[in-house]
Write a protein that binds this DNA or RNA. Sequence first.
DNA 1: ATCTGTGAACATTTTCACAGCG
DNA 2: CGCTGTGAAAATGTTCACAGAT
Lengths: 265, 265
Amino acid sequence: MTVDRGTRPTRRAVPSTRPPGEGLATADAGGAARPVPAATVARLAVYLRVLTTLLDEGRTVVSSEELAAAAGVNSAKLRKDLSHIGSSGVRGVGYEVSRLTAEVEATLGLTQPHAVALVGVGNLGHALAGYGGFAQRGFPVAALFDVDPALVGTEIGGVEVVHASEIPRVCAERGVTIGVVATPARAAQEVCDHLVAAGVRSILNFAPTVLAVPAGVEVRKVDLAVEMQVLSFHVARRHGSVPAAGPVTGTTAPTAPTPREAVTR
Amino acid sequence: MTVDRGTRPTRRAVPSTRPPGEGLATADAGGAARPVPAATVARLAVYLRVLTTLLDEGRTVVSSEELAAAAGVNSAKLRKDLSHIGSSGVRGVGYEVSRLTAEVEATLGLTQPHAVALVGVGNLGHALAGYGGFAQRGFPVAALFDVDPALVGTEIGGVEVVHASEIPRVCAERGVTIGVVATPARAAQEVCDHLVAAGVRSILNFAPTVLAVPAGVEVRKVDLAVEMQVLSFHVARRHGSVPAAGPVTGTTAPTAPTPREAVTR
DNA sequence: ATCTGTGAACATTTTCACAGCG
DNA sequence: CGCTGTGAAAATGTTCACAGAT
């Protein structure tokens, strides 16, 4: 930001000392190549949602500009992201919606469903279990666990709650590949260990703790307190100093949250 | 990764074209300086949780190494983060827990409570409203909104659910500074607009949509589908190719997830 | 003429490694 | 010594701007 292009110090003539094909596609511990940058992966999921909507609307092609706007990123980033998955748009035209959708889905590994185990059917866990979004999007909730005797044996969304001690057996039987931890903080690490022991290699953690896991296990964390505190930081910063620019009727730019460059420009 | 430093391919005599004190502290649209990098802010919240735990345990000092380990980052990063908030540890000793806690809280703007409005008291929203975590951490839920006549008038956690059309009035009256959107996707933008019109400048969005907001409004998004799909990507990648290194009893390195370099080396 | 794909500039974030305080 | 604070290197991510396909 703050850019002010136009100045263009024109430093050109950079020796370009970069070894040939390095930069991305770095190999990982396992030895498998990772051609898709982490930051890109997270955005692919967003693009996919927009694409799904477009498909429903019967759209057949979309430009990078439009897709980017709907996803809240700029078009250059979108095109670079898509270039990483080897996608192929048509110059002068755009991307074929159905094809691009399929490519993104393939990249994200969504061509097959991933059985999910949800541990902790308390306040939040219960809501997650009842939330249809999981199954809808190819993540069927295959198992529910808790330690509370009052909950074990009950059924949520057609799935019976089983005691957490059964995690190894049940996860193995039902082919669980993704675990969701929605327990209190103090129970989270133990639950996580059981999931890992059961062969689960991807975990979504809602408990406010950092989970320790062996190499090869991916943990993603959703922490409400962290989100709120980050917002608090911004409240404190701007402290009402915002000019409340224009009629605050929302609906500014559906594109990049705001054309800050235009301001700087 | 993959580094193999030591090779050091051409050191590239960088002309060091950088203007003196630039790099961080970039000014923003508003004109206010932001000395704390965004990436750091998000981690401060994590450090804070660990610090709180340490306080409860009666600890008085902690080293960057230990704090970093508990927070799941490496110690260099932690020290750099803390340096941005002007913190002051004691060399050869560590950080005073209570003092550091206060400094982090001050930076995050947690010295005063932030009234929260939660819009959408459906499945997820209800769970969030009932979740004690908000109030506990200085984010009292000051208002609940929904459009469902069956919900309006009911009470959750001592707060009455009000019709969403009242957002402007109620938010103003109760001094709401943070809004949480937990509505279905189709309603999210409109709700967001109302919140913004009511003066809310920080929004946490659980709806699977990109919200368009005017400049000066901060939106953070929690998207379960995105998280799941990112995990799916990793499931697809490692496809059971993981060597299952060592006894899978968890508790590997609480610090840096794993010394990958050692492997590559 | 239009819109993708991409090299290279730029910006941010992470990591290293070490000077220097206690 | 042990441990913080920090310059500087490396890595990662974003944006620009344009060549080139259609």
